[in-house]
Amino acid sequence: MAILVYVEHDNSELKADTLKTVAAAQAIGGDIDLLVAGHNCQAVVDAAATVSGVNKVLVADNAAYEHQLAENVSALVLELAGDYEHILSTALSVGKNFMPRVAALLDVAQVSDIIGVESADTFVRPIYAGNAIATVQSLDTKKVITVRATAFDAVATDGSAEVVALSNATDAGISAHVSDELTESERPDLGAASVVISGGRGMQNGDNFKLLEGIADKLGAAIGASRAAVDAGFVPNDMQVGQTGKIVAPDLYIAVGISGAIQHLAGMKDSKIIVAINKDPEAPIFQVADYGLVADLFDTLPELESKL
């Protein structure tokens, strides 16, 4: 059995979550190949070759794949699919975008967002925003799977896999990249940070998120937000933690002025330690917090910053 794992990257950096997706592949069992599809992405290829337990790194370095458009990448993966029984990708924005396209082209279902591997055809995945956990057995011969990285531990990077250059260059010609508008930040990526501090509706406005910045700087934390804060226009959507935003599981998650709606809990309840700061002692967030502090955040945050 062979497994193809799609590498998430931005042409310059391999996303660390890929290492966790490789761990899911190892749990399935079989020869693991990685696929790097991009353009001028040698640094990613170098990093991919060091991923432990990998047989080959397939590299499709071509302008057609520069922005990893779903139409082109799915065609590429389809061209390679014959050699693999399992095709895996991390459930990040690139994988979520093109993988169902691969599945449909192969005429198979996709098992989305798995958090556990029971066997080569049976997987565990959250449904209803994580309020129920389903165990599903795929009946298709080929399995197309996206992996929730937070549920797996990263593999080591002490390998030296063979790198194989591919000549594939399919451009479907029906879509084009126009522009990227990426949030500039000195802080770690939300998905990769070991500490996350998030603000909710209790922050009252976008300016008050500055109160989180000093603490984030001291802890090396990423800053997140609840959907309520995003909906209220305080902060952009890429900061959203929750069912409809990012799923995070850092060592320390600090929820500030967040009541703890089901949809927010779905995005952070696998964090190792959860701290809740909220002035409402009845807020549901306290039911999942390891440490709760019932206090006004406008008093608490400056004090916390000074004492860290």
């Binding site: 922005h67 924005s93 879509s175 084009a176 990249h177 508008e181 990426l182 990526d189 998905g191 890429d238």
Partner: peptide
């Protein structure tokens, strides 16, 4: 809406 922000495509 993508991981790091926004991406615009023409289809």
């Amino acid at each position: 809406e993508v991981d790091g922000g926004l991406q615009t495509v023409a289809l």
